[in-house]
Amino acid sequence: MIEGATQPPPASLDASKEALIFIRGVQKTLGSQKVLRGVDLEIRKGETLVILGRSGGGKSVLLKMLIGLMSPDEGTIIFDGTNLSDLNERELAPVRRRFGMLFQGAALFDSLDVAANIAFPLREAGERNPEVIEKKVREALALVGLDGQQKKMPVNLSGGMRKRVGLARAIVTRPECILYDEPTAGLDPISTDGIDRLIKDLQNRFHVTSIVITHDLGSAWKIADRVAFLHQGRILEVGLPSDICGAKNPLIQDFVAGRCGEHSLV
Protein backbone atom coordinates (compact mmCIF):
# COMPACT_ATOMS: atom_id res chain seq x y z
CA MET A 1 0.00 0.00 0.00
CA ILE A 2 1.28 3.44 -0.89
CA GLU A 3 2.24 5.61 2.01
CA GLY A 4 -0.13 8.52 2.57
CA ALA A 5 -2.87 7.14 0.32
CA THR A 6 -6.48 7.03 1.48
CA GLN A 7 -7.70 3.48 1.85
CA PRO A 8 -10.17 2.31 -0.81
CA PRO A 9 -12.90 0.01 0.42
CA PRO A 10 -12.93 -3.48 -1.07
CA ALA A 11 -14.98 -3.33 -4.26
CA SER A 12 -16.64 -6.16 -6.06
CA LEU A 13 -15.79 -6.62 -9.71
CA ASP A 14 -18.12 -8.71 -11.74
CA ALA A 15 -15.94 -9.59 -14.73
CA SER A 16 -18.79 -11.51 -16.31
CA LYS A 17 -20.71 -8.26 -16.93
CA GLU A 18 -21.30 -7.56 -20.60
CA ALA A 19 -19.22 -4.71 -22.07
CA LEU A 20 -21.31 -1.71 -23.14
CA ILE A 21 -18.53 0.41 -24.64
CA PHE A 22 -15.37 -0.75 -26.38
CA ILE A 23 -12.58 1.75 -26.97
CA ARG A 24 -9.88 0.46 -29.29
CA GLY A 25 -6.65 2.23 -30.27
CA VAL A 26 -8.16 5.69 -30.00
CA GLN A 27 -5.85 8.55 -30.95
CA LYS A 28 -6.57 12.27 -31.07
CA THR A 29 -4.46 15.30 -31.91
CA LEU A 30 -5.69 18.79 -31.07
CA GLY A 31 -3.65 21.48 -32.82
CA SER A 32 -0.05 20.38 -32.42
CA GLN A 33 -0.69 18.39 -29.25
CA LYS A 34 -1.22 14.64 -29.35
CA VAL A 35 -3.87 14.27 -26.63
CA LEU A 36 -4.66 10.56 -26.92
CA ARG A 37 -2.04 8.11 -28.13
CA GLY A 38 -3.85 4.80 -28.45
CA VAL A 39 -6.42 4.27 -25.69
CA ASP A 40 -7.85 0.78 -25.20
CA LEU A 41 -10.61 0.38 -22.63
CA GLU A 42 -13.80 -1.58 -22.02
CA ILE A 43 -16.71 -0.26 -20.00
CA ARG A 44 -19.12 -2.84 -18.65
CA LYS A 45 -22.87 -2.53 -18.36
CA GLY A 46 -23.96 -1.23 -14.96
CA GLU A 47 -20.49 -0.53 -13.60
CA THR A 48 -19.03 2.74 -12.33
CA LEU A 49 -15.66 3.33 -13.95
CA VAL A 50 -13.57 6.17 -12.60
CA ILE A 51 -10.91 7.63 -14.87
CA LEU A 52 -8.04 9.18 -12.95
CA GLY A 53 -5.10 11.10 -14.30
CA ARG A 54 -3.32 14.41 -14.20
CA SER A 55 -4.87 17.55 -15.63
CA GLY A 56 -4.38 17.86 -19.39
CA GLY A 57 -4.00 14.11 -19.77
CA GLY A 58 -6.91 13.75 -22.22
CA LYS A 59 -9.65 12.56 -19.84
CA SER A 60 -12.29 15.12 -20.91
CA VAL A 61 -11.47 14.54 -24.59
CA LEU A 62 -11.95 10.79 -24.08
CA LEU A 63 -15.27 11.40 -22.31
CA LYS A 64 -16.51 13.63 -25.15
CA MET A 65 -15.56 10.93 -27.65
CA LEU A 66 -17.75 8.38 -25.85
CA ILE A 67 -20.83 10.42 -26.78
CA GLY A 68 -19.59 11.42 -30.24
CA LEU A 69 -18.95 15.09 -29.41
CA MET A 70 -15.43 14.57 -30.75
CA SER A 71 -14.34 11.90 -33.18
CA PRO A 72 -11.09 9.96 -32.95
CA ASP A 73 -8.37 10.48 -35.58
CA GLU A 74 -7.57 6.76 -35.32
CA GLY A 75 -9.28 3.84 -33.60
CA THR A 76 -12.88 2.98 -32.85
CA ILE A 77 -15.45 3.53 -30.13
CA ILE A 78 -18.26 0.99 -30.12
CA PHE A 79 -21.33 1.68 -27.99
CA ASP A 80 -23.73 -1.24 -27.62
CA GLY A 81 -22.61 -2.71 -30.95
CA THR A 82 -22.64 0.59 -32.89
CA ASN A 83 -19.42 2.11 -34.15
CA LEU A 84 -19.86 5.81 -33.38
CA SER A 85 -17.44 6.82 -36.16
CA ASP A 86 -19.88 5.41 -38.75
CA LEU A 87 -22.67 7.78 -37.68
CA ASN A 88 -23.22 11.36 -38.78
CA GLU A 89 -24.51 14.12 -36.44
CA ARG A 90 -28.17 13.28 -37.10
CA GLU A 91 -27.68 9.52 -36.71
CA LEU A 92 -25.84 10.08 -33.43
CA ALA A 93 -28.86 11.82 -31.85
CA PRO A 94 -30.71 8.61 -30.75
CA VAL A 95 -27.46 7.17 -29.36
CA ARG A 96 -26.78 10.38 -27.41
CA ARG A 97 -30.27 10.32 -25.89
CA ARG A 98 -29.26 7.09 -24.13
CA PHE A 99 -26.57 9.08 -22.32
CA GLY A 100 -26.61 11.81 -19.73
CA MET A 101 -23.62 14.07 -19.39
CA LEU A 102 -22.45 16.39 -16.66
CA PHE A 103 -19.98 18.89 -18.07
CA GLN A 104 -17.00 20.28 -16.17
CA GLY A 105 -18.57 23.79 -16.04
CA ALA A 106 -22.15 22.39 -15.93
CA ALA A 107 -22.93 24.01 -19.35
CA LEU A 108 -26.36 25.25 -18.25
CA PHE A 109 -28.31 27.27 -20.82
CA ASP A 110 -27.98 30.91 -19.73
CA SER A 111 -31.28 31.93 -21.29
CA LEU A 112 -33.35 29.34 -19.39
CA ASP A 113 -34.13 29.13 -15.68
CA VAL A 114 -33.24 26.08 -13.58
CA ALA A 115 -36.57 24.32 -14.21
CA ALA A 116 -36.40 24.91 -17.97
CA ASN A 117 -32.80 23.68 -18.07
CA ILE A 118 -33.76 20.41 -16.39
CA ALA A 119 -36.94 20.07 -18.44
CA PHE A 120 -35.00 20.57 -21.68
CA PRO A 121 -33.96 16.92 -22.26
CA LEU A 122 -37.46 15.76 -21.25
CA ARG A 123 -39.07 18.03 -23.85
CA GLU A 124 -36.53 16.94 -26.45
CA ALA A 125 -37.42 13.33 -25.66
CA GLY A 126 -41.03 14.16 -26.57
CA GLU A 127 -42.59 14.73 -23.12
CA ARG A 128 -45.30 17.37 -23.49
CA ASN A 129 -47.39 17.02 -20.30
CA PRO A 130 -46.50 20.04 -18.10
CA GLU A 131 -47.51 18.23 -14.90
CA VAL A 132 -45.26 15.25 -15.67
CA ILE A 133 -42.40 17.59 -16.58
CA GLU A 134 -42.85 19.62 -13.38
CA LYS A 135 -42.94 16.45 -11.25
CA LYS A 136 -39.81 15.01 -12.86
CA VAL A 137 -37.96 18.33 -12.55
CA ARG A 138 -38.89 18.53 -8.86
CA GLU A 139 -37.74 14.93 -8.28
CA ALA A 140 -34.42 15.53 -10.06
CA LEU A 141 -33.82 18.73 -8.09
CA ALA A 142 -34.70 16.97 -4.83
CA LEU A 143 -32.11 14.29 -5.61
CA VAL A 144 -29.39 16.95 -5.80
CA GLY A 145 -30.77 18.88 -2.83
CA LEU A 146 -32.01 21.91 -4.76
CA ASP A 147 -35.81 21.57 -4.73
CA GLY A 148 -37.34 25.06 -4.59
CA GLN A 149 -34.69 26.66 -6.82
CA GLN A 150 -36.70 26.12 -10.03
CA LYS A 151 -37.13 29.80 -10.90
CA LYS A 152 -33.51 30.87 -10.44
CA MET A 153 -31.44 31.79 -13.47
CA PRO A 154 -28.06 30.03 -13.88
CA VAL A 155 -26.21 33.33 -13.51
CA ASN A 156 -27.56 33.62 -9.94
CA LEU A 157 -26.27 30.20 -8.84
CA SER A 158 -22.97 29.42 -7.15
CA GLY A 159 -20.50 27.12 -8.93
CA GLY A 160 -21.52 24.17 -6.77
CA MET A 161 -25.23 24.78 -7.35
CA ARG A 162 -24.69 25.04 -11.11
CA LYS A 163 -22.94 21.70 -10.99
CA ARG A 164 -25.81 20.10 -9.10
CA VAL A 165 -28.37 21.55 -11.54
CA GLY A 166 -26.22 20.15 -14.38
CA LEU A 167 -26.32 16.78 -12.63
CA ALA A 168 -30.11 16.98 -12.24
CA ARG A 169 -30.38 17.70 -15.98
CA ALA A 170 -28.11 14.74 -16.77
CA ILE A 171 -30.18 12.27 -14.76
CA VAL A 172 -33.73 13.54 -15.33
CA THR A 173 -34.39 11.27 -18.31
CA ARG A 174 -32.97 8.23 -16.44
CA PRO A 175 -30.34 7.50 -19.11
CA GLU A 176 -28.61 4.11 -19.40
CA CYS A 177 -25.18 5.64 -19.17
CA ILE A 178 -24.04 8.83 -17.43
CA LEU A 179 -20.77 10.61 -18.09
CA TYR A 180 -19.53 12.80 -15.25
CA ASP A 181 -16.74 15.31 -15.88
CA GLU A 182 -15.48 16.21 -12.39
CA PRO A 183 -18.87 15.96 -10.63
CA THR A 184 -17.60 17.02 -7.21
CA ALA A 185 -15.08 19.72 -8.14
CA GLY A 186 -15.88 22.91 -6.23
CA LEU A 187 -18.44 21.28 -3.93
CA ASP A 188 -18.33 21.29 -0.13
CA PRO A 189 -17.65 17.92 1.59
CA ILE A 190 -21.31 17.35 2.45
CA SER A 191 -22.50 18.02 -1.11
CA THR A 192 -19.63 15.86 -2.40
CA ASP A 193 -20.78 12.97 -0.24
CA GLY A 194 -24.36 13.56 -1.45
CA ILE A 195 -23.25 13.36 -5.10
CA ASP A 196 -21.19 10.23 -4.43
CA ARG A 197 -24.21 8.58 -2.82
CA LEU A 198 -26.40 9.66 -5.72
CA ILE A 199 -24.04 8.09 -8.26
CA LYS A 200 -24.04 4.82 -6.30
CA ASP A 201 -27.80 5.01 -5.78
CA LEU A 202 -28.43 5.44 -9.53
CA GLN A 203 -26.22 2.44 -10.17
CA ASN A 204 -27.94 0.26 -7.58
CA ARG A 205 -31.54 1.29 -8.36
CA PHE A 206 -31.47 1.76 -12.11
CA HIS A 207 -28.30 -0.18 -13.13
CA VAL A 208 -26.90 2.97 -14.70
CA THR A 209 -23.44 2.69 -16.23
CA SER A 210 -21.34 5.60 -14.99
CA ILE A 211 -18.03 6.90 -16.26
CA VAL A 212 -16.58 9.47 -13.90
CA ILE A 213 -13.61 11.74 -14.34
CA THR A 214 -12.40 13.07 -11.02
CA HIS A 215 -9.33 14.23 -9.15
CA ASP A 216 -11.09 13.60 -5.84
CA LEU A 217 -9.56 10.31 -4.70
CA GLY A 218 -11.93 10.06 -1.72
CA SER A 219 -14.89 10.09 -4.12
CA ALA A 220 -13.13 7.72 -6.51
CA TRP A 221 -12.61 5.05 -3.86
CA LYS A 222 -16.21 5.42 -2.69
CA ILE A 223 -17.96 5.12 -6.03
CA ALA A 224 -15.66 3.14 -8.32
CA ASP A 225 -16.15 -0.48 -9.30
CA ARG A 226 -13.05 -0.10 -11.44
CA VAL A 227 -10.49 2.64 -11.91
CA ALA A 228 -8.52 3.46 -15.06
CA PHE A 229 -5.42 5.64 -14.88
CA LEU A 230 -4.85 7.78 -17.98
CA HIS A 231 -1.50 9.46 -18.43
CA GLN A 232 -0.20 11.35 -21.47
CA GLY A 233 -2.86 9.88 -23.71
CA ARG A 234 -2.47 6.24 -22.67
CA ILE A 235 -4.17 4.01 -20.11
CA LEU A 236 -1.41 3.00 -17.70
CA GLU A 237 -3.51 0.76 -15.46
CA VAL A 238 -7.08 -0.52 -15.12
CA GLY A 239 -8.35 -2.45 -12.15
CA LEU A 240 -10.11 -2.46 -8.83
CA PRO A 241 -9.58 0.62 -6.66
CA SER A 242 -7.34 -1.52 -4.45
CA ASP A 243 -5.25 -2.51 -7.52
CA ILE A 244 -4.70 1.14 -8.39
CA CYS A 245 -3.87 1.98 -4.80
CA GLY A 246 -1.30 -0.80 -4.72
CA ALA A 247 0.04 -0.21 -8.25
CA LYS A 248 3.78 -0.58 -8.77
CA ASN A 249 3.96 2.24 -11.33
CA PRO A 250 5.71 5.16 -9.60
CA LEU A 251 3.57 7.71 -11.47
CA ILE A 252 0.39 6.16 -10.10
CA GLN A 253 2.00 5.89 -6.67
CA ASP A 254 2.80 9.61 -6.72
CA PHE A 255 -0.74 10.48 -7.92
CA VAL A 256 -2.45 8.37 -5.29
CA ALA A 257 -0.21 9.67 -2.53
CA GLY A 258 -0.67 13.27 -3.76
CA ARG A 259 3.09 13.62 -4.04
CA CYS A 260 5.05 15.64 -6.57
CA GLY A 261 7.79 13.08 -7.19
CA GLU A 262 10.40 12.97 -9.93
CA HIS A 263 8.15 10.77 -12.11
CA SER A 264 5.17 13.06 -11.84
CA LEU A 265 7.21 15.98 -13.16
CA VAL A 266 7.58 14.23 -16.53
Binding site: L92, Q104, L108
Partner: peptide, 14 residues
Protein backbone atom coordinates in the same frame (compact mmCIF):
# COMPACT_ATOMS: atom_id res chain seq x y z
CA UNK B 1 -17.10 28.61 -25.48
CA UNK B 2 -19.12 27.64 -22.38
CA UNK B 3 -19.86 24.15 -23.79
CA UNK B 4 -23.62 24.89 -24.08
CA UNK B 5 -23.54 23.80 -27.71
CA UNK B 6 -21.81 20.57 -26.69
CA UNK B 7 -24.56 20.16 -24.08
CA UNK B 8 -27.20 20.54 -26.82
CA UNK B 9 -25.45 17.92 -28.94
CA UNK B 10 -25.05 15.62 -25.94
CA UNK B 11 -28.84 15.72 -25.51
CA UNK B 12 -29.33 14.67 -29.12
CA UNK B 13 -30.25 18.17 -30.33
CA UNK B 14 -28.71 19.31 -33.60
Amino acid sequence: VTEQIDALRAMGVN
